[in-house]
Nucleic acid binder design. Structure first.
Length: 419
RNA sequence: GUGAGUGUAGCCCAGUGGUCUAAGGCGCCAGGUUGUGGCCCUGGAUAUCGAGGGUUCAAAUCCCUCCACUCACCCCA
């Protein structure tokens, strides 16, 4: 028997209410904050990702779904959403539009990893990018928007973590100090951290091993090494967030795993959770557009994992509105009336009354049972006797009451009762 | 890539060597009501017991290999 590839899932009808709900809230949020939707291809040149995310990151080193197409081109299924949006910004000359350009997307994302709770090889992200403005007020807006989005979904008890990791001017000095600091504990570090020491110094702060945690606590802090501009940016951002009443926590160990981040980085986490606690995160990437061949352009963005949001909606028992289903079921008792039934069903739908219709020859009992299981409010029953008089039985499934109504009046009556 | 746990019908699961041609519950189908759902009663369909190999007179049950799933590490959403 075939089954969905490892790390992928079928999103069955029973789950779709969550997806519809989240996408709707996402679109509403974006409308309120002035973001427009963009859809970029699901695959891009491998280069785009290796250049932007960073060659030594795990994503690029071992998690990309890459292949060579029939034209010999190196192609990669998108492992994240920011780089393609930046590529589109450059390609379509969006620097000529009023800045910042605000774009959002919901899209599948592919990473070759061992699946576990809240982690898949194909997952879905809702994200947005604000490109072309370096004002910390924009950072605040982006963070506020993420917070608003989660709040509007009904999620509570969230934690907002914030940090600044500096820019190309001030970060090298910080990295040097950090490396020096960790170097003195070198033989006490875990195997992974010994590798990080040379390869990805910032990530040393992120190690969750108990033996490494104490080193992170007393490690040099990036915010103590910020240049004047970065320091000011961070100070102003903090002020805006306070004004907005967003309860942020500065976390000196928050560094994020993609190389393109500069200055502001942030994550939003639920208070309780499994290993994959982050439901959304983002930050500034002031060097990325230039790195990808555009003009030097400041920007920042945010992305959230829809599967993880659903996980938390369930954990917090948030009630999701059901997807609207037809409220009318048309049953028939004889194949001789099928013509009438088909016509009626079609005309109801054209008048915006959703209707189920049985097409096979089932017993009336079976049809009513089905109608009951679906949960429709009304069943229209048509048989030989009704057809003779141009009438139908209209049964109210909640009360069990039923009337004989002429087919001509059915629509008006239904429209009235379904109000 | 590493480690641990789990694999019995669509779903939840009983069963730890012979009474298993595999029990129960949910769901599904049908009948009880010859044109009427939900409750109840009765009946029915659906399982090469994850796959392959081995031990044994005998394997869902023990052993080996593989596969899948789950959780965790790594990393991230």
């Amino acid at each position: 028997m075939y089954q969905a590839p490892r790390g992928t899932v079928d999103i069955l009808p029973a789950e779709q209410s969550y997806w519809f709900y989240i996408r709707q809230k996402a679109a509403q949020t974006c409308q309120l904050y002035g973001y427009e939707r963009i859809d970029t291809p699901i695959f891009e040149s491998t280069n785009l990702f290796s250049r932007s995310i960073g060659k030594t990151t795990d994503i690029v080193e071992k998690e990309m779904y890459s292949f060579i197409d029939k034209g010999g081109k190196q192609i990669t299924l998108r492992p994240e959403g920011t780089a393609p949006v930046c590529r589109a910004y450059i390609q379509h000359g969006m620097q000529n539009k009023p800045q910042p350009v605000k774009l959002y997307y919901t899209t599948p994302v592919f990473r070759y990893e061992r699946p576990q709770a809240g982690r898949y090889r194909q997952h879905h992200q809702f994200g947005y990018e604000a490109i072309g403005d370096n004002d910390p007020a924009l950072d605040a807006e982006v963070i506020d928007m993420a917070w608003f989005f989660f709040e509007s979904l009904g999620l509570s008890k969230l934690t907002l973590l914030l940090n600044s990791i500096g820019c190309s001017k001030c970060r090298p000095e910080y990295l040097t100090s950090l490396r020096q600091y960790y170097h003195s504990y070198r033989n006490k570090l875990c195997v992974d951290c010994k590798v990080r020491l040379d390869k990805n110094t910032l990530r040393l702060l992120d190690c969750k091993k108990e033996t490494c945690l104490p080193f992170a606590v007393t490690a040099p802090r990036s915010i103590d090494y910020l240049c004047h501009e970065c320091k000011e940016h961070f100070r102003l951002l903090g002020g805006y967030l306070q004004q907005l009443g967003l309860p942020f926590l500065v976390n000196h160990c928050l560094v994020r795993g993609l190389d393109y981040y500069t200055r502001t980085v942030f994550e939003i986490q639920p208070q309780v959770g499994g290993a994959q606690s982050t439901i959304g995160g983002g930050g500034r990437y002031d060097g990325l557009i230039e790195e990808l061949g555009g003009k030097s352009t400041p920007a920042l963005g945010f992305a959230s994992g829809i599967e993880r949001i659903i996980l938390n909606l369930k954990k917090q028992s948030v009630v999701i509105p059901p997807i609207h289903q037809p409220q009318v079921f048309i049953a028939h008792t004889s194949d001789r009336v099928k013509n009438e039934v088909t016509k009626l069903a079609s005309s109801l739908r054209r008048a915006s009354v959703g209707a189920f219709q049985t097409t096979s020859s089932k017993s009336l009992k079976a049809q009513l049972r089905q109608a009951n299981n679906i949960g429709v409010r009304y069943v229209i029953i048509i048989g030989d006797e009704e057809i003779k008089t141009g009438a139908a039985i209209l049964r109210n499934m909640t009360t069990g009451e039923q009337d004989i109504v002429s087919i001509a009046e059915l629509l008006d009556k239904l429209l009235c009762q379904l109000q």
